[in-house]
Nucleic acid binder design. Structure first.
Lengths: 209, 209
DNA sequence: CGAAAAATTGCGTGCCACGCAATGTCTGTG
DNA sequence: CACAGACATTGCGTGGCACGCAATTTTTCG
């Protein structure tokens, strides 16, 4: 049998650990170079070199430099959806959505100045498509969670998918607004406000269509 | 002086007319080939050939085949936003939005079977980014119109941009839902329902934040 | 008509995604 | 511990695309 009981979880094998290491190295290199020079002026060759790996290997992990740069957003999207699932089941949907989104997007102004610059990357047009992909996955996750709460189906009813899409859109507008405005506002507050616009208590309380 | 008084408007010059002609030829060729073979399997070279023009000329009009294919969506986005502006000023915002969007998206099932297939192109992942660009322009137009109605500012207040983004997101979900479901439902109805989910009369009636 | 303006085109360059096969590295088993 | 199979890395080659540049053709308008 196996000498240790941990296989898939943390990535017990040395193999898997190295894999994640190079993956993270590629992401960090991609984000750093994108912040410094801009997404254009950043070639795949440069990212690979900065991560100490061959250009061909880069494409084994990501199919484009944009995908590497925005991959952090994909992870955040997953975590945000999970945060909604973890909210208490008896909490009103509107509140659950507000908290789930705002809690996963703390204001990085103070603690981490680089994180702020990283969030600002969302404004580069060339990265928009990739961030949009991340938003689509968040939509699917949120729709599933909303359907779960309201007793509707993602395929049958329009409600879960529409509300999820609206909430994600609100999140995007809030983040963009925050990134382009002054630093004296808290990101979480803006997100909560934007989400509140699209999901009002009166409608969130309803069941099926 | 000029022998004729028409210069910019309808495209008086023969030059401008030919330009729009080749542009339309490229769009039609791109859409047709994309419908037949799929967006992949459709090279820029093929589109240019089908439009009777050189590949280099294609790139003078569009910077990618996806842009050519989705350009119809951009036009529709413009028209939709204008439709909102034309709604009576005293009409409640929720109703104005529902009507503007639904009226500009009549059900093409009966009159034009090809239009239906064209709308289905929205589901191809490779075209998503380009359709998203169209959605972003619609967002900006709608936000401006909403700000106009509610007396808020697109830059200052979060409300217009957020509501516009939510409405556009609802439109996307509705269109996707309709495209992937049976033909016995009217597109306009689904859009109206989806829009109704994100914009309730109770909130749409409010003024500033 | 004739010159300026503008569109089309061919050519060259750089970047990129990806299939394929060779090579190197890790893993579990006998 | 050795080994065979699984898996990651890499180099190479191919096809496609976006775009700058300059030559050529077409349109415009005095």
């Amino acid at each position: 049998m196996r000498p240790m009981a941990l296989d898939t979880p943390v990535g017990g094998g040395l193999r898997e650990r190295k894999k994640q290491a190079t993956r993270q190295a590629l992401i960090q290199a991609a984000v750093r170079l994108a912040r410094e020079r801009g997404p254009d002026r950043t070639r795949v060759e440069d990212i690979a070199a900065a991560a100490g790996v061959s250009p061909r290997t880069f494409n084994n992990y990501f199919s484009s430099k944009e995908e590497a740069i925005a991959s952090a957003a994909v992870d955040r999207a997953e975590r945000t959806a999970e945060a909604l699932v973890r909210r208490p089941a008896d909490e009103p949907l509107a509140d659950a959505l507000r908290h789930a989104l705002a809690d996963e997007h703390p204001d990085p102004s103070v603690r981490d100045p680089e994180a702020r610059a990283q969030l600002r990357l969302i404004m580069w047009p060339q990265l928009r498509a990739e961030y949009h992909k991340a938003e689509l996955t968040m939509e699917r996750r949120l729709a599933a969670a909303i359907a779960e709460r309201t007793g509707t189906g993602t395929g049958r009813d329009l409600y879960p998918r529409t509300l999820a899409a609206a909430v994600v859109a609100a999140l995007r507008v809030a983040t963009t607004h925050w990134a382009s405005s002054g630093k004296d506002v808290r990101l979480g507050d803006i997100i909560a406000e934007a989400v509140g616009i699209v999901v009002s208590p009166v409608q969130a309380g309803r069941g099926g269509k």
